[in-house]
Every structure is written in structure tokens, then in C-alpha cells.
Computed example of a mutant assay.
Amino acid sequence: MKTLKASAFFLLALLTSNTATALSDDFKQQASINADNQYIDLAKNIAVYKGNVTIKQGSIEITADRLEVYNHGEHGVELMVLIGRPARFSQRVGDGNNISAQAKEIRFERGTNIIKLNRSAQLTWGKNVVKGDTISYDMVRQLLNADRNANKKDQVTTILQPNESKN
């Protein structure tokens, strides 16, 4: 029961923050991608970046070992697949906190602004943490779903920090 209340509190905190402002400001900025190697197939609308991949766009910072971008011929609906040990994503949001994510694979669906973390996933919001095998986070609607690996005993874990009261 305590865990249910804590999870509900955490999700309420996610839903009431001002992420949309940070999100829209970041995506209005230019993006810079750096890597050791870049391969682009213009006919298939696929780009692959390998080795020390870093992406910066506004307050968004991403690191990975490999980035695959699938454009499907339409700007703004790209699918980005980041692979790393782990791949990492961070963004400063409207309430002044940082949201960060890490997993062995991060899928970012740009058209829907959904981040899917797969294999050893962790999402941190301020000082609060959610861990699971898979985590899906809708950046616009601010919805989070975490699942455990069906083959393992580990459950989803949420760690909430106590409120800091000013005395």
C-alpha cells in the first residue's frame, strides 16, 4: 500500500510539472551531433553514427555508442535508436529539475515525443528514481510506464526522496 501511494505521488509530481515549456524551447534550438563515424544512406533515409556519439539541443544532452536515425522521408517523425553501455539522455525541465534516463537501448519517437528505455532502464526526475527493465515516457503528456522483465524476479523500483522542509 505504501509503494502504491509513493508511486501515485511520484506520478502526480510528474504530471503537475512544467515540462512542455522546456520541451518546446529545446526543440526550437539547433541540434548538434558528433561521432567518430557517420554513415548516411540518402535513398533509404537512414543515418548511422558510431563511436562516442554526443547530441546537444538546447538543454538536451545525449550520449551513446551508436545512434541510428530512421527518417522515413518525412521531417519531424524520425525514429532515433541509441545504443550504449548505457546510452544516456538528460534535459532540464520547466520546474528547474533535470530529467535523465539511461538504458542499453533508448528509442526516441520524435513524432510522438515518446522515449522508450529498454534493458536496465532508469529514469531520474530531480532526486526521484524509477528503475525497471523497460520504461516508456511520453514527454508531452507526461505519462510514465515501467515494467519488469518477465523472465526475471526483479520488480519495478521507485525511490522517492522525502520532502525538504524549511524550518
Score class of each variant (00 low, 15 high):
Gly111Met: 01
Leu123Trp: 03
Ala146Phe: 07
Thr157Lys: 04
Asp95Met: 10
Gly111Val: 07
Gly126Leu: 02
Gly132Tyr: 01
Ile106Asn: 07
Glu105Ile: 05
Lys131Asn: 04
Asp147Thr: 08
Lys153Ile: 07
Met139Cys: 10
Val129Lys: 00
Leu143Cys: 07
Asp95Trp: 06
Gly126Arg: 01
Arg141Cys: 03
Ser136Ile: 12
Arg119Leu: 07
Lys152Pro: 07
Lys131Ser: 06
Val156Met: 07
Glu105Lys: 06
Ile99Gln: 03
Ala103Gln: 01
Asp154Ile: 01
Ile106Phe: 08
Gly96Cys: 14
Leu144Val: 08
Asn98Lys: 11
Gly96Tyr: 13
Ala103Val: 01
Ser136Met: 15
Arg110Asn: 11
Gly126Tyr: 14
Phe108Ala: 12
Met139Glu: 06
Lys152Glu: 12
Ile106Ser: 02
Thr158Ala: 14
Gln102Trp: 14
Leu144Tyr: 04
Gly126Ile: 00
Gln122Lys: 08
Ala101His: 04
Ser100Lys: 12
Val130Trp: 00
Ala101Val: 13
Arg107Cys: 03
Val130Glu: 02
Leu123Cys: 12
Asp154Ser: 01
Trp125Lys: 11
Asn118Glu: 15
Ser120Pro: 06
Asp147Gln: 11
Asp95Phe: 11
Lys127Arg: 03
Ala150Ser: 07
Thr157Val: 02
Asp154His: 05
Ser136Cys: 12
Leu117Thr: 00
Lys131Ala: 08
Ile115His: 00
Arg141Tyr: 13
Leu117Met: 04
Lys116Trp: 09
Asn113Val: 12
Asp154Met: 00
Thr157Gln: 11
Val129Asp: 01
Asp138Leu: 08
Leu144Ala: 07
Thr112Ala: 01
Ala121Arg: 01
Gln155Asn: 04
Gly132Arg: 00
Ala121Asp: 01
Lys152Ile: 09
Leu117Glu: 00
Met139Asp: 00
Gln102Gly: 13
Glu109Thr: 10
Ala146Thr: 08
Lys152His: 10
Glu109Ala: 11
Asn98Trp: 08
Ile114Pro: 09
